[in-house]
Design a protein around this nucleic acid. Structure first.
Lengths: 246, 246
DNA sequence: CGAAGAATTGATTGTTGTCAACACACGTGG
DNA sequence: CCACGTGTGTTGACAACAATCAATTCTTCG
C-alpha cells in the first residue's frame, strides 16, 4: 500500500544487479514507464502462491525472499533465496502458473513488471529481450550448479557453499563479505540444503570450533574466508586466492 | 553428415512434444525454413561441450541424451535425460556459454535451430516466442521438482520416480509404459539420482523382489505400475488411479 | 512472568557409501 | 567354437555420515 507513482530504476541502488543492468539510459527510461510502484511485504507474506496464474515478474528492491516448491504429500523444498536486484517469477513466464511460492524472509519491497507490458516493451527493445533471456539462462545455470551440490557434496560442503554464496552476494551489493545477518532461519537453511535442522546446527558449531566463522544467532562473521571457500569448493571472486600473494 | 536439405516438422513423429507443438500450420512452415538438417550422433558423442559459446538450440528427433554439469574438482552431475521432441541448449540461450555438456546415450539425431534465425523468427511469430518462453519456464519447473526429489526423498523413492518418469515419457510418445529398454547405464542413473552405482543395483534387485519390476540388463518391465508410482510419490497421468475403478 | 517457538545438544539408529570380490556380457583373436 | 580380456553390473561386509528421537536452553513476545 505504499504510493510511489514513479519508479526510478536509474536511481535505484540495485539496478546493476537487476533488469536494467545491460540497458542504455534511454531503454531504462522506457522500462521505468512500465514498472509498477513498490509493494512492501512483511516477514512470512507471500508474493505469489504455488498454482497462481502468472501475472508478471517481481524485482526485489530491498529485503529477501525464499522460493518454495511443494510436493503432493506436503513436503516442501526451498529452491532459492533471493536478494535485492534479483527477479522472481520466471518459473511461470508466459502462460504457465507458478509451481513455487515466494515468501518474504524479512520486511521487503518489490517492483512489479506486468507481463503484457513487459512483453510488448521487450519486442521493441532488443536489449531488454536479451536481458530477459540472460536471466532465464542464468536461472537454469544456477539450478544446474545447485543440483551438482545436492548430488555430490557432503552436508559440511553444502553449508560452507551456502555461507560463501550469501557472503558473495552481500559483497557484490557493497556490504561486508565477512560480517552479515542471515535473514533465513536454521529451518530454512536445513530445508534448502536438504538436511535436518539438527545437522545444520551441529555443522555451524563445528565451523565455529574450526575457527572458520563466529556466530551469534543469525549474525555471522566469517573469520577464515579462504578456508570456508575451500570447503565450499567454489573459487569465489571476492576471496583472495592463496596463490595470488597480492 | 547426413544430407536432408529440408526438415519437415509437419511430418515429424515427435512434433507434438517439440517446438511446433503450439504453432499453426503456417507458422510451422516458417519454422521449417530455419531448421537445419538432422545430424546423427553416436553413443558418447557430444552435441556441445561445457564452456562452448551458444550457437542455437537442438531438438532431439531420435535417440536420447544426458546433460552434465562439471565441478572444478572434476565431479560431474547429470542434470537431465532428454528424449525425442525435447530441446537441448536453454542453459546458454542468447549470449551465454554452456555450463553443461550434452552427450548421446545411443545413436541419436537432432535438428539444429540457429540462434540468430530463431530469434528473428520469434520476433515475427508471437506463437513461437511464447512457445520458447513456455519451454524455458517448463525447464525451470522441472528443475524445481527434481530439486524437491533430491532434497526430500530417499534413494528408493528417487529410483522409483526415475522409472516412472521414463515410463511416462515413453508412454507419451506412443511406446509401452510398462516395457522399455533404458538407454542409460547404471552409472548414469546413479549419478543422476545422487547415489552410488551399488545402491542403484541393490534397489533394482529390491524392486524385483517386491514384484514391482522385472529386469534383464537394461530391459525393464514394470509389473506394478501403481505400486511403483506410489513409491515415486507422483501421480502420473498414464497410471490408472486405484480410486478410479474404471 | 509465562508460553510458544527456535535452536542447541546428546544418544542412538539407519540409510547409504566405501571397499572388495565376483559374475556376466560382449568383443577379439586364436 | 572357445579362451581371454575388458567393461559393466552385482553382491557382501563393514563404516560413516546424517537422520531420528528426546531433552534442554535460549529468544521472543504477549
Amino acid at each position: 500500500m505504499s504510493t510511489h507513482n514513479f519508479v526510478r530504476c536509474s536511481n535505484c541502488a540495485v539496478s546493476k544487479f537487476c533488469l536494467p543492468h545491460t540497458l542504455s539510459g534511454e531503454d531504462i527510461g522506457q522500462l521505468e514507464g512500465i514498472v509498477q510502484q513498490k509493494r512492501v511485504l512483511h516477514p512470512g507474506e507471500a508474493l505469489y502462491q504455488s498454482g497462481d496464474q502468472f501475472e508478471g515478474l517481481y524485482a526485489i528492491s530491498s529485503g529477501s525472499f525464499k522460493s518454495v516448491v511443494i510436493a503432493s504429500n506436503g513436503d516442501s523444498q526451498i529452491t532459492q533465496f533471493a536478494f535485492p536486484g534479483e527477479i522472481l517469477g520466471f518459473d511461470a513466464y508466459h502462460g504457465k502458473s507458478h509451481n513455487t511460492f515466494a515468501e518474504a524472509l524479512e520486511t521487503s519491497s518489490v517492483c512489479f513488471l506486468p507481463h503484457s507490458q513487459l512483453e510488448t516493451l521487450a519486442q521493441k527493445v532488443p536489449a531488454l529481450q536479451n536481458q530477459l533471456y540472460n536471466l532465464f539462462s542464468a536461472e537454469i545455470q544456477e539450478n544446474n550448479e545447485f543440483l551438482l551440490m545436492m548430488g555430490k557434496r557432503s552436508a559440511e560442503d553444502r553449508l560452507a557453499a551456502l555461507l560463501m554464496n550469501v557472503s558473495s552476494r552481500y559483497s557484490q551489493r557493497g556490504y561486508s563479505a565477512t560480517h552479515f545477518r542471515l535473514s533465513m532461519s536454521r529451518t530454512d537453511i536445513a530445508n534448502y540444503l536438504g538436511l535436518t535442522i539438527e545437522t545444520v546446527s551441529r555443522l555451524i558449531r563445528r565451523f565455529q570450533k574450526e575457527a572458520l566463522i563466529e556466530v551469534n544467532q543469525r549474525d555471522i562473521t566469517i573469520t577464515d574466508l579462504v578456508g570456508l571457500s575451500e570447503l565450499a569448493g567454489t573459487h569465489c571472486s571476492h576471496v583472495e586466492q592463496p596463490s595470488n600473494a597480492g
